[in-house]
Design a protein around this nucleic acid. Structure first.
Length: 286
DNA sequence: AGGCAGGCTTTCT
DNA sequence: AGAAAGCCTGCC
């Protein structure tokens, strides 16, 4: 186990921020996270977090995954008090961070997300992993009878590879609740399969934001919005600013003169996450 | 060329 | 019924 103090992070808020669809609360504030890198569970203990891994693994994998190198307090300071809407959104979603998730997984999940609702997206992603992922074991946390946290082995499903989805074919993708998006998923799986696919993914990672966005737009089923989500959540181009139906409503309501993208250059995507979180969680939180 | 209407699967509110 | 982290096609 590893204990560490982390500021500007709340796992419940991250789970409800619409950027990841496989995080879940097990019990008593214990969160399970399945990433390309593996599996971990975490719980908050006042100022600190307790993770179900050793320090070495945390430093090499999870510190990066939770984006701990980034200064979120610094991002927040860039929003002036005059911008009362964004100040309120940040107050509401103070613990949201942009996770460093797997690029391939972000491609699939954000294609699924189009014209869709979050419960259904989660269902499709879960079914996809159940059907085509691999079963692995990783360490989790349990509270022992004397009130101490202990590590236990748990089993989890990995996110399926491009090849496993591609070989399933269209018929293999039925019953997952993908709807008309099934052909988009098959297409992106084919694009990412084999040596050619690996090369394309590697090139995407190398590219800057403009170039990556253009590469993504060439894929079937990826438009401007999904491309921006992949740039933001899969490539960590935090200047990307996905405009979906919720953000569109926010912009017309609070920024009728236009959102000051210039002022927030280089961090618009992070602010977009606070806005999105506030929009879909404000009612439940009040 | 660039913009717009209509259609698309299915679930949730 | 209308909306949901939209995109594709065909038409102008």
């Amino acid at each position: 186990m590893y204990r560490i103090k982390i500021t500007d992070m709340d796992l419940g808020q991250i789970a409800k921020s619409g950027q990841c669809f496989r995080m879940k609360e097990l019990e008593q504030g214990v969160w399970s996270v399945t990433a390309g890198a593996g599996y971990i569970e975490a719980v908050r203990e006042e100022e600190e977090f307790l993770f179900s891994c050793e320090e070495g693994e945390f430093q090499t994998i999870w510190s990066h995954y939770f984006d701990l190198e980034e200064d979120y307090a610094g991002y927040k300071k860039r929003v002036p008090s005059e911008d009362s809407y964004l100040r309120e959104a940040i107050r509401c979603g103070w613990g949201v961070r942009i996770l460093r998730q797997d690029l391939w997984e972000m491609l699939v999940t954000f294609i699924i997300s189009q014209n869709n609702n979050i419960p259904r997206i989660k269902g499709s992603v879960k079914e996809l992993c159940q059907r085509f992922g691999m079963e692995k074991t990783g360490k989790g946390l349990v509270l022992s009878s004397d009130g101490r946290w202990e590590e236990v082995w748990k089993s989890y499903m990995t996110f399926p590879s491009p090849e496993s989805i591609a070989s399933a074919g269209l018929s293999g993708l039925s019953g997952l609740g993908l709807g008309y998006r099934d052909k988009y998923i098959l297409s992106i799986a084919e694009s990412c399969s084999g040596p050619e696919g690996k090369k394309w993914l590697a090139g995407l990672k190398e590219a800057d934001y403009e170039c990556a966005h253009a590469m993504l737009l060439k894929q079937l089923g990826i438009g401007k919005k999904v491309a921006d989500c992949v740039c933001l959540f899969g490539l960590h181009h935090v200047g990307a600013f996905p405009v979906d139906t919720h953000v569109k409503q926010i912009l017309t309501t609070y920024y009728p003169e236009g959102f000051p993208l210039k002022r927030y250059e280089g961090c618009a995507g992070i602010l977009q996450q606070y806005m999105f979180y506030h929009k879909i969680n404000r009612l439940a939180a009040e």
